[in-house]
Nucleic acid binder design. Structure first.
Lengths: 345, 345
DNA sequence: ATTTCGTCATGTAACGTTTCATTCAAGAAG
DNA sequence: CTTCTTGAATGAAACGTTACATGACGAAAT
């Protein structure tokens, strides 16, 4: 702003208090013994000058930035934003500041971000890579050289991880639909290069296998987790031959895409098509009818991810990597019904 | 992680390349003239050692952290998250990193965050304070000593500001409802200590004044912008005497609260009650019926806020504070209808 | 009375950069 | 052949901290 007056340094404080630099430092970090009279002089000088320590210089000296970064695909996804919010809260309370970056499902961007963060000497990292085994990405992560908590990704190296039980969750969802009488159940999810995509596929197959039914792979689509992709695939399947009687939106951001496709195809939920979404949201709760979802508590996950990282940081320990698993719960609402005869093949 | 090997410094690079520290620095910042032979030796050393400059040390020397912070009430609000996302993108592309903090509508928290950011010597700040004129908050903002862009707040001091045309937007919404035949229109919004609350009040009054009608202040509620508050006030009004025939959710996060209250009261939109929300969202778009909203494009706003700040930073100029105004648009959907006779008083 | 501690304050090095004032060598000009 | 001038590399200082080694000064112990 207007005030281009440089901020006072500890040197100014020392001068104003008539003590040495070291003494001023000692009263600020109030650990060592220091003459009470000098202490008050320093304290006075601090409040008169409005001194506050320069965190950059401290970082330089102490080799810790008290900064933690979160890299995530898209912060506007409701689940992710709750994740970030709760993690930020924990981190802030522990004295860390949060750096946030969106990788946008782009390898280059993810690499660039990792690079930039490495330079900045952050203390820790919470992220969900776009591709678990990509060499460059693995190397870039390693290069940052700080503890990492991976979010629903198969951990590589020494990273800790939070993993989500989407396999069981999807299995449960599919079984629920099978029990309602559905046979043609579509699953739309993201890349199989990441854990959540693979797990949902497995869960889907588990359910069919358990029921002794064969899966129709044409109803299983996996490219990316965006609502646009969900819209495209939903539209294609709904208007193709042998349309599904139920759709599972296998990604936290995908439900809107599916719903848009259903609306555009002039179908009604659940009379014409049953729908199950991933994670609870205002939309799934307040839609008419409310949408059944495979829920997972992203607030809790954010908290635990932050704690996991802080713990690792505190006890810099060489403990083996840890992985924390979070289960899912099927929140049954009114978006699923037995398939209508007319739409059965 | 495992590698506790300290990262190579420019000194290591210089030694490995057999040149002086200054020379290494010059080839890294590739501005000055340097002997081509030495240049390649340095470059080789850099790639062999895997050197990347320490941003903390650079910040120390250059007195710029290339970090910009956003402080916002709640990052999970869909509009805000889009704001953050687009701002982050612009900032990242300009070489800045984003620090994010949630103020949670708490003065203490906001103060604490400002303090922490001041220490960290961020380069700029985008925020929306919880109370525009609170002395402590004004002082704390000043104390950070960097350019600020205020988001939909009356700027103090030298801060730039993005302001939103909620007054006109609300007036337009109220007029729309008046034209449909509504007379008892509820407005629920946040604190009048901030601009958006006040502006909505004014817009509401403008519309009634223009129609030559008197406002019923009991239908105007303003405390805070949360869905919980919207739920409480909606429920109270809908089940009280002389219930409104239309409700305007005057805050970007409030529509879900209003909708929950309507559902809980077993009313139908728009047959029993008309509803207008603030800003477009997946919920307003995909609800049944889709909800009419006073929209404002938070993506565009995020971009402009970032640009405004970058511009100020680039031309460190003492230009007078700027304010950019964004208009609103009424997106008419199916949540409003003429009031039903039976519910008119 | 001299030595030995212990208590506190001081001064300084170091963290990893960038930049500025020097130095040095070599080529051009007298 | 000497002197200037230019171009390029070097060395050192500085940014704001913290921490460590030193030093000063009394008090206690021999």
């Amino acid at each position: 702003m207007g005030d281009r007056v440089p901020k006072p340094t500890i040197k100014d404080v020392a001068r104003a208090a008539g003590v040495s630099l070291g003494t001023a430092s000692r009263v600020i970090n109030s650990n060592a013994t220091v003459n009470p009279k000098l202490r008050v002089k320093v304290l006075e000088a601090i409040s008169i000058l409005g001194y506050s320590p320069n965190a950059v210089a401290q970082s330089m000296r102490l080799k810790t930035t008290q900064a933690i970064a979160i890299i995530i695909r898209d912060i506007t996804v409701p689940g992710f934003s709750h994740f970030i919010k709760s993690a930020q809260e924990i981190l802030y309370d522990a004295g860390y500041v949060l750096m946030l970056a969106a990788s946008e499902d782009s390898k280059d961007r993810e690499l660039g971000i990792l690079n930039s963060l490495a330079r900045r000497r952050i203390d820790g990292l919470i992220m969900s890579t776009m591709s678990e085994n990509d060499e460059d990405l693995v190397a870039a992560r390693e290069e940052v050289g700080v503890p990492i908590v991976l979010l629903d990704r198969e951990p590589t190296g020494t990273a800790d991880a939070i993993i989500l039980g989407y396999r069981e969750g999807t299995q449960q969802a599919v079984e629920y639909l099978l029990n309602l009488g559905h046979a043609r159940i579509a699953l739309i999810t993201g890349s199989l290069e990441t854990r959540p995509g693979r797990e949902r596929f497995l869960g889907y197959e588990d359910a069919f296998a358990a029921a002794g039914l064969a899966v129709d792979r044409r109803l299983m689509r996996a490219r990316n987790f965006t609502p646009e992709y969900a819209f495209v695939e939903s539209t294609a399947m709904l208007n193709g031959r042998d349309p599904p009687t139920a759709i599972i939106a296998g990604g936290v951001a995908m439900l809107p895409g599916v719903m848009r496709a259903i609306a555009a195809s002039n179908l009604r939920i659940p009379a014409d098509i049953s729908v199950i979404g991933s994670i609870n949201s205002e939309l799934s709760e307040l839609a008419t009818p409310p949408i059944t979802v495979v829920n997972v508590d992203y607030r809790a996950i954010g908290i635990e991810a932050a704690r996991l990282l802080l713990d690792r940081l505190d006890n810099a320990l060489e403990d083996p990597p840890r992985r924390l698993k979070f289960g899912t719960s099927l929140i049954i609402r009114q978006s699923c019904a037995p398939p209508t005869a007319s739409r059965l093949r």
